[in-house]
């Protein structure tokens, strides 16, 4: 931890970065905070807690106002995947971001069922192996179609339309949100029109979702949203060999055809 603090302090003092987005502990509560060279004393309160805030979402708000500054940010595996996607989508310039990587503990990795609980470069913590767990998908897949629909309609009908899943999402960076398009989804209803509300969002997550699980943590109705997004994520890998959060130079195959591939997916399940 002391090394981490020193590292950040040096970067701020040398002017390598204009700010460092991390978390401080205030009266026992971890909260996001941007360290600058004017607030170095706050580094005493720097913390790497076991709760997560949407760091790259916050980063984007700062970058939008300071597009030319270099900013450091504390990232876990999920945040780092988000950085790759944000760069792919031209929301940030990787050259202007200095990720400080934190590896998650085994407990956190298991709690999050995270397949890659570490960032590209680790500055803090010990790398642990990812968790391979698709029991949530298997649970749904074990049902027949009619039970699945009952299950999901039951889940969706709890939705209070808080938009929390979108608001907390690092990948929901659009200026205008389809979920608020009143030609598609009626406004003013809670629950919203189902299943369209949730399926539109789920489809958008194909080629976007970095499987951080913040959506599910933010859902007051406890809807297993992440399973939906994990499903499309898995499909993108199976059908199109595309996994988000891996390589900045790749492109979403649902948006871009690619220069050398006019290939048609062959593995199409027709039932």
């Amino acid at each position: 931890m002391e090394n981490l603090k020193k590292n950040i302090k040096d970067m701020l003092e040398s002017g390598e970065i204009a700010g460092f987005l991390g978390l401080i502990e205030e009266e026992g509560h971890p909260i996001p905070f941007l360290f600058t060279k004017d607030s170095l004393d706050k580094l005493d309160a720097l913390t790497v807690p076991d709760i997560r805030y949407p760091m790259t979402d916050i980063l984007l708000k700062i970058v939008r106002k300071y597009p030319e500054d270099t900013i450091g940010v504390m990232v876990r595996g999920c945040d780092d995947r988000a950085l790759i996607e944000l760069a792919k989508n031209q929301k940030i310039l990787s050259d202007l971001i200095r990720p400080i990587g934190v590896a998650c503990t085994k407990e956190m990795a298991e709690y999050c069922r995270c397949s890659q609980p570490y960032p590209r470069e680790i500055h803090y913590g010990e790398k642990v192996e990812g968790v391979k767990d698709r029991s949530d998908l298997e649970k749904v897949e074990s049902m027949d179609l009619s039970d699945r629909l009952d299950y999901w309609m039951g889940q969706f009908s709890k939705c209070i339309k808080c938009y929390g899943c979108r608001n907390i999402c690092s990948m929901c960076f659009c200026d205008q949100c389809t979920l608020e398009d009143d030609t598609l989804i009626l406004t003013g209803q809670a629950p919203p029109e189902i299943p369209i509300f949730h399926l539109i969002r789920a489809f958008h997550m194909a080629g976007r979702c970095i499987d951080c699980g913040l959506c599910e943590e933010a859902c007051p109705a406890h809807i297993p949203l992440r399973s939906l997004y994990r499903k499309v994520r898995e499909d993108m890998a199976d059908y199109l060999g595309y996994v988000t959060g891996m390589d900045e130079t790749e492109r979403d195959p649902l948006e871009f055809l690619g220069s050398d591939g006019y290939e048609v997916p062959t593995k199409i399940d027709e039932t």
Partner: peptide, 17 residues
């Protein structure tokens, strides 16, 4: 409850589950 006290409704949904 879901309109006026949504986060209490959230607890009630948990109870139901």
């Amino acid at each position: 409850t879901t309109s006026s006290h949504p986060l209490i409704a959230s607890r009630i949904m948990t109870a139901k589950a």
